[in-house]
């Protein structure tokens, strides 16, 4: 392969001339292979991990006109308020004082229960992240909508009353 045959030109040399020892031209390639594979490993790891995915979010147009607002049936609505410290406050219908507390692990069950007991056309989930909720909380809940195949949901700010209620609960529960 890589060796070259060096032919001594003169055929037989004189009696006093020493024969030059032929040195092998082979190079040990093992370290080079090692290095090659090390770099390959490095590039594989850096390329595949950075693939970002995107989640589609469509927001409704703000409207001042009351008649254009979507009407939500009280029997079909579930409001999820996202509070401080990864806590969700939820209530059915339109009475915030009846709110209950849950976490992100159990919210799926609540949504699925509601979905089972409500006609599909009436079901509407209202997501209200408050001032202390994180972006992760909002994405998690939106993701939950995709996971549970909920088609009608909206993300709005909580009303001052609701925010007051959340704060009261948080103070009572000692959430910091």
């Amino acid at each position: 392969m890589a060796e070259m045959e060096v032919k001594s030109s003169g055929g037989k040399k004189g009696p006093g001339v020493k024969k030059g020892k032929k040195l092998s031209t082979r190079v040990d390639l093992t370290p080079m292979v090692d290095l090659g594979f090390l770099l390959i490993t490095f590039f594989i790891f850096t390329t595949t991990v950075t693939q970002a995915t995107a989640m589609k979010l469509n927001m409704p147009k703000d409207t001042k006109d009351k008649n254009q607002e979507n009407k939500v049936k009280e029997s079909g609505s579930l409001t999820l308020m996202l509070g401080k410290g990864n806590v969700i406050y939820y209530y059915y219908g339109s009475d915030p004082t009846k709110m209950q507390t849950t976490g992100y692990k159990d919210v799926r069950k609540i949504i699925l229960d509601k979905k089972k007991n409500t006609p599909a056309d009436d079901l509407f989930i209202i997501i209200k992240p408050d001032k202390d909720a994180t972006y992760k909380n909002a994405v998690d809940v939106l993701d939950e909508m995709t996971i549970n195949d909920i088609n009608r949901y909206a993300m709005v700010d909580p009303t001052p009353d609701e925010y007051g209620l959340i704060q009261k609960t948080e103070q009572a529960g000692g959430v910091k």
Partner: peptide, 24 residues
């Protein structure tokens, strides 16, 4: 974005597996 009448966004997230047993 809303001020400029843009209502469709892509939120960049990292991939996650769908939990088994859910509708999706």
């Amino acid at each position: 974005f809303k001020k400029n009448d843009e209502y469709k966004y892509n939120l960049i997230t990292s991939a996650e597996d769908v939990p088994p047993g859910t509708p999706l």
